[in-house]
Simulated assay, not measured.
Amino acid sequence: MSNAYIDILAYFGIGGAHPGGFSLTQSILETENIPPTHSVLDIGCGTGQTAAFLAERFNCQVTAIDKHPVMVEKARQRFKNNKSSVHVVEGDIQNMDFVDNSFDLVIAESVIVFTDISKTLSELSRVLKSDGTLMMIEMVAEQYLSEEKQQKACSLYGINEILDKDEWLLRLHQAGFTQVEIISTPSVLLQSEINDINPSENIKMELFDLWEKHNEFIFHNRDIIGYRAFKCRKV
């Protein structure tokens, strides 16, 4: 099923569109010990900005997966241009072909909320090694959302629900992540600075209109909807 907001990111070729942007990604990952022997999975990889950083900075084994064919093509183009060894897969993160216990680290940047959250978390728990780590940045309700606000946000982003912090923690525990740390970051949802872009030709005008609605929504609801960065383990 198509998601118009994801289409924006794909056709505009926006890297680092998640809350906090690529600078947050770098600051979080720089504190991690990721040896070259580690196998890393970047889910919802988009155009491959984070996967490229992982491969270049840590020289680790990186697999990047995304469901959107335009995203996958642009990621492959990025890795072909920089001769990266990142393995790009087109697939559904809710039902991946990887065997159990495949990865030491899984990265998810504003991805899980666009899926069946419980199903995806269970799938990530399955492919993650028993001593592995899930690093995720996700949208969070900072206070009670009226039904009208919920419907507006879900319609705009093509999502099913917006969880608060405690609901995220509960879903993570239900999926088998027994050790969850909330990484200290600013929680206010602001428009991320965009400095990595690879636009397609002939982008439909309605995608520009939807991008404006997205910016307007963030501006008017930044005290109500924020984000958190989670570090999760199955230990």
Rank of each mutant, 00 (worst) to 15 (best):
P186Y: 01
E147W: 05
G15R: 01
T50H: 04
Y144N: 14
V235E: 15
A153R: 09
L169Y: 12
N95Q: 15
I225Y: 06
H214E: 05
E123S: 09
N95T: 10
N3R: 10
S39A: 12
M1G: 14
S130V: 11
E123M: 03
F114K: 00
T31I: 12
L54S: 01
F98N: 01
R76Q: 15
I159G: 03
S102C: 06
E142W: 00
Y11H: 14
E32A: 10
S102T: 02
Q174V: 13
L172H: 09
Y157I: 01
L134D: 09
S39T: 13
A153L: 14
A4H: 14
N33R: 14
K129Y: 08
G44Y: 03
Q26C: 10
D97S: 15
T63Y: 12
R222E: 03
R57G: 00
S84V: 07
R126N: 09
K83S: 15
I93S: 06
Q77C: 03
I137C: 15
E142G: 03
V113C: 10
E148G: 04
F22D: 00
S192D: 06
I43H: 00
D92L: 02
S85H: 14
E123C: 06
I203V: 07
F53G: 05
I43R: 00
S200P: 02
F217I: 07
V89P: 03
S122T: 13
Q61F: 02
T133V: 11
Q179R: 15
C154I: 05
S85Q: 14
S84P: 02
V106T: 09
T25L: 03
K231Q: 08
S184N: 14
I43P: 09
I112M: 01
M139D: 08
P186R: 05
L9P: 02
G176S: 08
I8V: 08
A64I: 05
G21W: 00
